[in-house]
Design a protein around this nucleic acid. Structure first.
Lengths: 218, 218
DNA sequence: CGTCGCGTTGAATCGCGTCAACTTCGGTGG
DNA sequence: CCACCGAAGTTGACGCGATTCAACGCGACG
């Protein structure tokens, strides 16, 4: 094991800089929490030894693990965008982690765009996690409902209608993306139509009952 | 629509900087490729209008979509780490995209650590995609095999044995992570043991036939 | 020695994929 | 402008893989 908090992925020339940014390693016993959702986070953590699991808890209290991390990994990157943790992260065994203060990592000459690029990457990482959560351990109906909501949210964020828009992709593409068969996606669209939750005219999709749609996801 | 290539997620104060980094928008017709795997990439792309799908092609020639992107999104971030594209990315409809040169985004005072942080985030993004690909549209056996290989690779990268190591997480955790039932994971471990591919003694796992394991994933 | 968490194994069920037939849509050329 | 053709979407019947439910073995620990 290396004596300083140098994670994989950083070359030796950066050791010094990073080392200045990191504190002394801290010991986490098995089943102790490194961080929890919504907790303000201005650090990353380098795993010097041991291992952790990161997970979310859904509305029914069920845990869903999003990632495992072993010695050498750096965790907490998806928190950069929010400034707060998005998952639980707990030690699987007795582990040593080094806190890496982001404030020290960010040089003072760090420009606005550079910071934003990091924000974007961090945000994207969070979205990827969400999409993963949407596909693992969910029914076909939940996946489709989640997908519709995600598209709806995107359009809303960009000033378009949240409830009526054109789906630019084919059913085949949607199915492929969600890990389902085309036939299943088609069946669910018709089922949602029959339930009065949505309506479709070719590629135009209308959300007719948003609460019902949200209820399907929860 | 906005007249310049400003994606969502960047505040107005950064518009100027980003604008300098981006070229004139370029039109991509439906079904035309924005970029392909292994193609050298030193740019991101901002979607000004339209939409794209990003996907990989597996060894059997089957497409697997990893993401959709609509107007306002920035694509190509997972390529930063490799310097080359990792997916195909094609227009779903007639779309306008702006190329954003990374060299212009990176200020000259961009420090080594800052760059490495981006590399890390980009790499993590790629890993998340891989994990997603491993879970979507794969059998339980493939997921478990992939998981074992991923852990094996990690230990190898960190100077430990590639073929014998301790799994720090429980079967329950593995199952949860892979979107399977514990019983299924257990059954697959015993099946792999009977096939002589692996061996287990409590949490110690030994890979006895690496080619066979790799074959399961392909 | 008893308990509890974890792992394994068996049997039954069910959700979703597969296969196949049919309809609708969009593009193209006569 | 309409006929045609292929791609995309829909619907039904059937089978399989993975989950669910249940029972049992095993090691860790008080």
């Amino acid at each position: 094991m290396q004596s300083i908090c140098v994670p994989a992925g950083l070359v030796s020339s950066d050791v010094e800089l990073l080392d200045k940014s990191s504190r002394e390693p801290h010991v986490y016993n098995k089943r102790t929490m490194v961080y929890s959702p919504d907790q303000p986070m201005h650090s990353l953590f380098a795993i010097k030894s041991g291992s952790v699991k990161c997970y979310t808890i859904d509305s029914e209290g069920k845990q869903q693990i999003t990632s495992f991390h072993l010695a050498g990994d750096i965790i907490g990157m998806e928190s950069i965008a929010r400034g707060a943790a998005v998952t639980y992260c707990e030690a699987l065994e007795t582990s040593m982690l080094c806190e890496i203060k982001l404030s020290r990592l960010f040089a003072q000459n760090f420009t606005g765009v550079d910071k934003n690029l990091l924000q974007l990457l961090s945000k994207r990482l969070g979205q990827r996690n969400s999409h993963y959560l949407n596909v693992v351990n969910t029914t076909a109906e939940q996946r489709v409902a989640s997908f519709i909501m995600a598209i709806s949210d995107h359009f809303a964020e960009h000033g378009f209608s949240r409830s009526e828009f054109r789906l630019p992709m084919t059913r085949t593409d949607i199915a492929n993306y969600l890990g389902l068969a085309v036939e299943t996606v088609s069946r669910i669209f018709t089922s949602l139509k029959q339930q009065g939750v949505i309506d479709t005219q070719q590629s135009i999709l209308t959300i007719k009952n948003t609460p019902a749609l949200e209820k399907l996801i929860a």
